[in-house]
Amino acid sequence: MKQSDGMTVIVKTITRMSVWLIILYGIYIILHGHLTPGGGFAGGVIIALAFLNVMLAYGRKYTEQWLNVRIMYDLVSTGAILFLIIGIFGIALKGSFLANILDLGELFKLESAGVIPIIDIFIGVIVSMGLFVMVWTLAVFHLEDGGEE
């Protein structure tokens, strides 16, 4: 099974056309987490699956050029830190950890529910980037030479 070559032209073309749509849909799901079913976890996995699509269709080399795994990995910890910092802001502004510090806004509006959509975005970043990095590490691992010095 050669992974670096990728699949046929048809698959590649369809992937190229659909990947942005899938990512957009994932972002939509993340942003509407407080209004409709879905949220950070579901949307994050959708985005991760889009990246995975690219990896399966184009192979490892192209994906390495397209995506920087190291930056994705840093984004995971950045997302986690920002989530924690929001919690700490809760202590500073409202006196208790993870309090809803922002204005609640109007029910059923996209920009409502205070801090909830923001946390949803951070979770989306953690899940999408993190799961892709996880699968990437599994995929680049060679049984023959992996890990031995």
């Binding site: 987490g33 409709t36 949220g39 806004g105 529910a113 909830i116």
Partner: peptide, 15 residues
Amino acid sequence: KETHSANIVTSIILD
């Protein structure tokens, strides 16, 4: 009403 999130499951897990 308290969190202004229409999805109550979301309001529980995120608030």
